[in-house]
Design a protein around this nucleic acid. Structure first.
Lengths: 139, 139
DNA sequence: CCCTTGGGTCACCCTTGGTAACAGTGCCCA
DNA sequence: TGGGCACTGTTACCAAGGGTGACCCAAGGG
């Protein structure tokens, strides 16, 4: 996601009736948070108010534009608060809302999954690649 | 993600030391599963072996190519097993591994989050849009 | 004059995903 | 004999979006 905030592209998960627990609700969350930067931003802002430039430095690798775009999106979804101090030079502080912190906690279960299975995945990948290679170079 | 399986684009989460719980581990998971179709495929294959064409029909909207690509990726990561029956016409069955089902369970916590805060998000968005609009049309 | 902060805007590129068409392999049917 | 079908892919081509870097602005302070 992270577009220039078009009016309403987000479609409401079709009238599929949850054939299974969901799959589509998950996608909604991922659309919000699946971007390259959202998570990092949520992490940084979860520890207290952070200024724009500060974020720019901490997130590392993010461009000014994407930072702006992501902040806007997160703010729009109510995951971030934006507080402007009309000083000069301007000062703007971003902070995660409780909702965002909760989301972050939920994401942590993914982390534990990744930690549990990191080795397994690496092994699977190694094996797969090995097989693919030997298939490519037959004799 | 879901590229044509380039050798090793995946970078190993930089030597940042986990400044915070993670943020980068999460991103690794999302890189695997953040694609448009991965979740749906995992869901469908979690209920037992599914054939290629069957998946093509069930996932609805997915193209042949993307299905193949996603299946390959998931198989490579050890989230799916691929079983070929040398019959004619060919028959290939895909099935989620226990690891994938576990991942799916973890993703469920995101679902519960989404359900808890769906209304809140919608409200925040409405408010944000209203403000933006009134700012755009001043008098 | 140039520095600062918090953006906006523009031009561009690369990745993601979509469409469509073709391939291979046996079967059935005329 | 040969055409078409079903099934699983593959390949080539293309559009859209995500992401980047560079430059612009405002307003005060050194």
């Amino acid at each position: 996601m992270v577009t220039e905030t078009k009016p309403e592209t987000r479609q409401m998960c079709a009238p599929v009736e949850n054939k299974q627990p969901d799959a589509c609700t998950v996608r909604e969350v991922l659309d919000r948070v699946g971007g390259k930067w959202s998570i990092s931003i949520i992490v940084e802002t979860s520890r207290g108010p952070v200024r724009f430039t500060e974020l720019e430095r901490k997130v590392e690798g993010i461009s000014r534009r994407m930072l702006t775009l992501n902040l806007r999106q997160l703010e729009r979804d109510g995951l971030l608060t934006r507080k402007v101090y009309p000083t000069v030079p301007p000062k703007v502080e971003y902070e995660a809302t409780p909702m965002a912190r909760e989301l972050y906690d939920s994401l942590m279960t993914l982390t534990t999954w990744a930690e549990r299975h990191g080795a397994e995945i690496a092994a699977a990948r190694a094996e797969y690649d090995a097989l693919a290679e030997s298939a490519a170079a037959p004799a």
